Amino acid sequence: MPTIHLNGQEREVTSHPDMPLLWVVREEFDLTGSKYGCGHGVCGGCVCEVDGAQVHLCKNTVADVQGKKVITIEGQEGPVAEAVFNAWLALDVAQCGMCQPAQIGSAIILLKQNANPTDEDIDEAMKHNLCRCATYHRIRKGIHYAAATLQRTGYQESSSN
């Protein structure tokens, strides 16, 4: 049976190696933060972190992530994740919430790579995450808020994430 490195643990997968990772994460491991939206990697509802990059779980299989570290929204932790979670709450960023796990996860990935992003950096990093409620301005504001929090606490991109 294949294994995947999921949220800091090696996990044995009972599904076929060609199974989309989104279904394995949701059905086999009951991690439902990643959402099924389109199944084609267009909406971004299933975006998670794989080896530090944004990856659509609906378009990647168990075999695709062998030897890679997969982090779903449930596994995000550390100073960047805390800053983003707190920003989302402080600014009431979410509206319906459907896209928010992927939005938050993408914001965390961005801030791990760029602790002081511009609006253009944010737009580029978040372009694969659609929000049916169009809260893009609040999402951008939340990312700036989290970045400011990280700067106040002395976080640096090269520190442990």
Rank of each mutant, 00 (worst) to 15 (best):
E74V: 08
T149Q: 15
I71A: 02
V62A: 07
K127Y: 08
L89Q: 12
G142Q: 01
V62F: 06
M19Y: 13
A94S: 14
A63D: 10
S158L: 13
Q103D: 06
F29W: 03
V84G: 06
L57V: 01
K69F: 02
G8K: 10
K35F: 04
Y136A: 04
D64K: 04
I71C: 01
G105A: 09
S106G: 05
Q113I: 10
G45M: 05
S106H: 02
H5V: 07
N116H: 10
H16F: 02
R132F: 03
M126H: 04
V55C: 08
G97A: 09
R140H: 09
G37V: 15
E124W: 04
H144D: 01
A125L: 03
D18T: 12
Y36H: 13
H144G: 07
T14A: 13
V50N: 02
I109A: 02
V13P: 06
E120K: 12
R11Y: 11
K59I: 09
T135N: 11
P17K: 01
N114I: 11
M126G: 06
K35R: 13
V55R: 15
V65Q: 10
L89Y: 10
A115G: 13
H56E: 08
V84S: 07
Q156P: 07
L91V: 01
D18Y: 11
P101S: 07
T61E: 05
V80I: 02
T118G: 07
Q9I: 02
Q100K: 02
A53G: 03
Q95Y: 07
A107P: 11
A90T: 04
E74I: 04
V25K: 05
I73T: 11
V93Y: 11
G41T: 10
G45L: 04
V42L: 14
R138G: 03
H40Q: 15
G8H: 06
A107E: 00
S160Y: 08
Q156M: 12
M1W: 12
E124R: 14
A94V: 09
Q113C: 05
R26L: 00
S160N: 14
A63F: 08
G37C: 08
L110A: 11
V93I: 10
A81H: 09
I122K: 14
T3D: 10
Q103L: 13
D18W: 01
E157D: 06
Q9R: 11
V13I: 10
T61L: 06
G39V: 02
L21K: 12
T61W: 03
C38K: 01
A115S: 15
T153C: 01
I122N: 08
N7D: 14
I73V: 09
V84Q: 06
T14Q: 12
V80Q: 05
F85S: 09
N114C: 13
R26F: 00
